[in-house]
Design a protein around this nucleic acid. Structure first.
Lengths: 208, 208
DNA sequence: CGGTATACGATGCGGTCGCATTGCTTTCGA
DNA sequence: TCGAAAGCAATGCGACCGCATCGTATACCG
């Protein structure tokens, strides 16, 4: 059994190509990218691209998965900067804020992801990747609402699950709008803060 | 000056072709349609399609504009069934409800529109058509909130403009989610009703 | 009636696309 | 060490694609 594949290096190559894909997607949209374009943008031969991806669909899907991972990583990093034992509300505000694309990396990931939206209708795999991770955030949001209710900071009649759903839907939508330049990031931030304040009560301490 | 064009008939032909485009878009997504496919689906020659549209982009844009018009018409029709002098809240509930795609025509228009979303980032004309009419709905929503506040049915501390923005963003997002089958229509409806009730207070009379 | 513009159908051209194929080089394990 | 697989580059094929072009039939107006 000769020449075992170095999966570390293998993955790095796939990422390099995917990043070139991202740049093209941002520049001209998903429908404008071809395997040749991606290869040229990445500065590699077309044979190389073919070697690392089974086909165009495979490459496209990987590009989206990677973008979603980046989004997740960015959120993790932001949470790590929150210090030890942050309360649910602080965590939620950080997570939803990140979904608006405040960090350039997040912004790129959002723009790329947004480009795939149209295909979600006809491609279940894309739809699955796009909604992956939503449940976790919803659970977190529901927790934050319950915590605020227990502390008497907000209306006990609110449904934590419904509020959580609304907040995530809102943050996602605002993020996409901002990514597509349909709305300024500043405005998106203001809208999200308004919604959060109304649902959780005014923040007691800083929440950036 | 011979052979004046019958603009009535002209428009009807463009619509016939656009409807075939819609069917293809629903079936396989925007990126899968070609001029040949559209001609075949419409049962006309390719020369005919070329005659009525300056190019593919022109046809695509017309298809979106027509879908947005359909959406507007459906809303108008629903409002017409509301009777004379409905209050702002009733109107708002009807408009936002229609944005969820409860009528099959609306649903089709939403699915088609959703397919264009990804291109909005790289094509300003598409973005413009997609957001056309939003301001009117936002104004209507703000009115409804103010009315509810004046009647003492909801919190006077709410900002009508912010609430209006949130409600429209939410309804649009829920409608797209439902159109992409990321969420059931029933669930979308429940989420919207919850948000409306929370913002406007419980409805005094029926609101369908 | 003749001419001009409309309303097409048919055909083909230049270009691009995804992908299969081929072949060379490198590297590692038996 | 040698052979098999990995890691590429190069090339080409067949299938489109959008669009230009050309031909023709038809209807309207002076």
């Amino acid at each position: 059994m000769p020449r075992a594949v170095d999966s570390q290096q293998h993955e790095r190559q796939r990422r390099l190509i995917a990043h070139a894909l991202w740049r093209l997607v941002e520049r001209a949209g998903l429908e404008a990218v071809s395997l040749r374009d991606v290869a040229a943008e990445a500065g590699v031969s077309m044979g190389r691209v073919q070697h690392y991806f089974a086909g165009k669909d495979d490459m496209l899907l990987f590009g989206l998965q990677l973008a979603q991972e980046r989004l997740g990583e960015r959120i993790e990093q932001r949470l790590a900067r929150l210090g030890t034992e942050p309360d649910a509300e602080t965590v939620l505000r950080a997570v939803l804020g990140e979904l608006l694309g405040e960090h350039p990396d997040t912004r790129q990931a959002l723009r790329v992801s947004a480009a795939y939206y149209g295909r979600a209708a006809s491609d279940p795999k894309i739809a699955a990747v796009l909604t992956d991770g939503d449940d976790d955030i919803r659970a977190l949001a529901a927790d934050a609402v319950r915590t605020a209710q227990d502390a008497g900071r907000t209306d006990p009649a609110l449904s934590p699950e419904r509020e959580a759903d609304l907040l995530l839907t809102l943050a996602t939508s605002l993020g996409v709008d901002a990514a597509l330049s349909l709305r300024s990031r500043h405005d998106a931030r203001a809208a999200l803060d308004y919604a959060l304040d109304r649902t959780l009560g005014r923040p007691t301490r800083g929440h950036r």
